[in-house]
Design a binder for these strands. Structure first.
Length: 252
DNA sequence: GCGACAG
DNA sequence: ATCTTGTCGC
């Protein structure tokens, strides 16, 4: 994907929004409900299945799940994941009965070319403390952290510290934690560790991944049962032009 | 042209 | 992200 007008507009949009990110300490002591966000989709199908989970601390019990299926309006473009995934994730979040104290996103926060990854985008849109916990470093470099859970090393992007490579489980690759919005990095790491529960990925996003996949399978089965009435997968119209309602806009 | 590249 | 078989280890 090249620098189409919509892509350039999105870059400018991210830079403008990044200036509004705050780095508050997370009130970890009173933290009770932590949400997780993830999506699933089938290979050539531009349909997104989102899941938002709410997990209770400190026992990591799953107390609420919302899933939602919507057509994607953007392709996946490295650095512009938000424009693809944020709309359906925000719509799903709006259906939550609980108001979580914080959100963990399957993706990056400040570890991003314009310092505005999906976790920043969602946190800012929701005005909620948000952190990114990704499975791959997205171009950032790091020294291998020690083997014990809690061991960590700085994540560097363009020579700048943007997050942590954090060991959450012995014998597993580290996860890549960066601040999204209204959170400090050490608190973000502490929260991820508090949610690890013996797994590599923190419970909120790990369970959201499971739920989003279940939603994709359920949707596929439902479509199969509908036969002729099933939605025909319209190919994603791309690129888009100015004035298109998919143009980067502050509401999503 | 080649390799990188969150999900 | 998804596609895919077997394989290694607790």
């Amino acid at each position: 994907m090249t620098a189409t007008p919509a892509v350039q507009a999105a870059w400018a949009d991210q830079t403008a929004r990044a200036a509004r990110i705050r780095h508050d300490p997370l009130p970890l002591a009173g933290l009770r409900y932590v949400a997780g966000a993830d999506t699933s989709s089938r290979r050539g199908l531009h349909i997104l299945h989102a899941a938002i989970t709410v997990v209770r601390l400190p026992d990591l019990a799953l107390v609420e799940v919302v899933t939602l299926t919507q057509p994607a309006t953007w392709p996946y473009i490295p650095g512009l994941l938000s424009y693809r995934e944020a709309p359906v994730l925000l719509a799903a979040f709006a259906q939550l009965k609980h108001r979580p104290d914080a959100l963990i996103v399957d993706g990056h926060g400040l570890c991003h070319p314009r310092r505005f990854g999906l976790a920043c985008h969602l946190g800012l849109a929701l005005d909620l403390p948000a952190i990114g916990c990704a499975k791959r470093p997205f171009g950032a470099t790091y020294a291998e952290p020690g083997p014990a859970p809690g061991d960590r090393a700085p994540l560097l992007l363009d020579e700048a510290p943007v997050g942590l490579a954090l060991r959450t489980r012995r014998g597993s690759a580290p996860v890549f934690v960066s601040v999204g919005h209204r959170a400090a990095l050490d608190d973000a790491a502490a929260l991820v560790l508090a949610c690890a529960g013996g797994y590599r990925l923190p419970a909120p996003t790990r369970l959201a991944h499971v739920e989003a996949n279940a939603q994709r399978r359920a949707w596929a089965a439902e479509q199969a049962a509908l036969g002729d009435a099933a939605v025909r997968p319209a190919p994603l119209a791309w690129p888009i032009e100015p004035g298109d309602d998919r143009w980067p806009n502050p509401t999503c």
